[in-house]
Amino acid sequence: MAAVGGLVLCLGLLVTPSAALAADASYRTLSTANHPDWMRPLPDGTSLAALSIPGTHETLSIHGGSWTQTQEDFGDGAATLTAQLNAGIRMIDIRARVNSGNTFTIHHGATYQNANLDDVLARLGAFLAAHPGESVVMRLKQECTGELGSCTDVSGQSAFQDIFDAYVARRPGLFWTPSVTRSAGAAMPTLGQIRGKVVLAVLNGSRGGVIERYGLAQFAGWHDGSSAYVQDEYNVPNVGAIATKRDQVRRFLDATSAASPALMYVNFASGASVFAQPQQVAGGAWGVQGVDPFLLAYLNQGPEVHTPVVRTGALMLDFPGGGLIDKILSYN
């Protein structure tokens, strides 16, 4: 293990920029956005699928260093989630480890993020009570694989789905019920059906497979990486490959914009590897434009440059800036 640690340290010295990447309207300025009630004026009959939704990848990953952190740190105990919700984030990506006492702790790989699922649900409940016109979409994933670099679930506990059901039962009314039923995926809801509720989009196992039939029926094929309605090409092998990731995000964004508004699309702008940290992929490095500034520029371009985007779907971002959040919401 000492040898592995030394290798990681050496790689860090090789690939980490000497100074922090500069914040701008697209990157690391989440608190400049303020949209706690953006869903409220939208008609009740609006389909969730038709919305342009700012989201966060690894929503609570604020600890563990440059290879692990994916979001600005606004505090432990899921205080960071509250900051995101106030900024306008409405789709979240929660990764849980099975811990003793049949509980979930929030992890990114081996790193505990100083928050538990109770913290997450308490923050969601408080926000939705204060802003009953809103709804939050959640992707919940079993994080631990037991492999090097990951976490290991505590043995002797209940199955992941049984523990989740217990959390749901302890907070009646928080989740939109059709999305947390094992036996049948839910049809795509309208805003009027889900205001004040958390919608579970999918429950993923540790290797990306779908657990039971929770969530929205449209996402029954949401496995590890990309699928019909999800772009999640998360392996960015080096800084130069950020250009490829930008193109993957752009192509899926264009496909989303052209598709039926009755279908929901989830586009992960995130990516990483040993030689490309999440902050580099998001913000750019070594003269290579990051995905976040690319997205803001692309969305701001007019019809003389490319076919205009008419909706973004859910864009799952690392270190989003306030200007990018503002722009995504402008499509609603």
Rank of each mutant, 00 (worst) to 15 (best):
A241T: 09
A22F: 11
S52M: 08
L295Y: 04
T152C: 01
T70H: 06
G322M: 09
G215S: 12
N300E: 08
A3K: 14
R207D: 12
L117Q: 04
D24K: 10
G77S: 10
Q218W: 00
F127I: 06
E143S: 13
L9S: 13
C151T: 08
T312Y: 02
L117T: 03
G55L: 07
I94Y: 02
T103G: 07
S66I: 15
N116L: 05
I106L: 15
G208Y: 00
G271N: 06
G208L: 09
V210F: 05
F319R: 00
S227F: 05
A201Q: 12
A22N: 11
D292V: 06
F319Y: 14
E58Y: 02
E72C: 03
Q280F: 10
V120H: 06
G240H: 10
D224Q: 14
L14Q: 13
Y112E: 05
A50I: 05
L60M: 12
V239C: 08
F74C: 07
N99Q: 15
P41S: 11
D292R: 05
V120D: 00
F319H: 00
V249L: 13
R123G: 01
F104Q: 07
M39C: 09
L317I: 02
K197A: 01
S257P: 09
L85G: 00
A87F: 05
G271K: 01
Y298L: 02
Y265Q: 02
L21E: 11
S155G: 14
A33V: 10
V168K: 04
